[in-house]
Write a protein that binds this DNA or RNA. Structure first.
Lengths: 119, 119
DNA sequence: CGGGATCCGTTTTGATACTG
DNA sequence: CAGTATCAAAACGGATCCCG
C-alpha cells in the first residue's frame, strides 16, 4: 500500500484506497469504531497480526490523521489508540462492508444448505 | 491478502476484506463498475499495475465469483472481464469510498487554501 | 498483436527475538 | 506492555517467450 501518500490521486476512490486500502488498516478501523483501545487489546483482537505490522499501520494511520495515539507514563506502559474525527468519518465504509459481508455469509450458508438438500 | 480464502471468517468485515481487501481488487472493481472492459483497457486505466498482477487479481476475483472472463477466439486476441451479479453487489462499497474520497479531497483543498490565506 | 505464463532480481511485508 | 532489530517469506516489476 502507499506509505502515507504525499500526493493525492485524482480519483476519489484512489484517495480512499491510498489511506485505508489494506486489510490491516481496515481491521484496525473496525476495532477502533467502538472506542479507544490499547495496543495489546488490538493485538489480541486482530487475528494473526504481529506487533510490528500493528505498530507500522497504527503509525501510518496516525500520520494520516486517522487515529490519535496517547502514551501514559506508567509502569507497565500503556498506549491508547483512538479514532480522530477523520477516522470516525470512515465509519460508513466499514459499515457497508459489514452489511455486505453479513449478506454474503447468509447466501453462502443458504447455498451450502441447498446443496445438502439436493443430495 | 488472503488468496481465495476457503474458510470464511466469522466477522463479516473480515469476510469482505478477504475478498476485496487489497488495493488492486478495489481498483479493478472501480474500473468494471461502468461495464465490461478488456484486459488492455484495464491495464491502461489502472496506474502502475503490471500485467502479471492484473492477471493474478483478475483470476482470483474470477475464482471468487466476482468477475466473469470471456475469451474471444480472434486475432488479435480479446479477453473481456465483467462484474458478475456478486461483483455488482459490491457497488455500494466502492460508492461509499468514492463519496468519502471526494469529501476528503474537498477538505484537503480547503485546508490548503486556508493555509495560504494565513501567510 | 494482445493476453498471459514464467523466470529472476528487487522491494515489501511479515514473524520472531530482543530491549526499555 | 509497547516497540525496535533481525531475518525469512511473499508480492511485485520487468524481461522474455509463447500461442492464437
Amino acid at each position: 500500500m502507499l506509505p502515507n501518500s504525499k500526493e493525492l490521486p485524482l480519483c476519489p476512490v484512489a484517495t480512499t484506497v491510498g489511506l485505508i486500502g489494506n486489510k490491516w488498516k481496515l481491521f484496525i478501523l473496525r476495532e477502533l469504531l467502538p472506542g479507544a483501545k490499547r495496543f495489546g487489546e488490538l493485538r489480541k483482537r486482530i487475528p494473526d497480526i504481529s506487533q510490528k505490522v500493528l505498530t507500522q499501520n497504527l503509525r501510518s494511520m496516525e500520520e494520516d490523521g486517522i487515529v490519535t495515539r496517547e502514551v501514559f507514563a506508567e509502569v507497565p506502559p500503556r498506549v491508547e489508540y483512538q479514532l480522530s474525527e477523520l477516522g470516525n468519518s470512515l465509519r460508513p465504509i466499514i459499515s457497508v462492508m459489514e452489511v455486505w459481508g453479513l449478506n454474503y455469509q447468509k447466501n453462502v450458508a443458504a447455498a451450502v444448505h441447498a446443496e445438502l438438500e439436493s443430495l
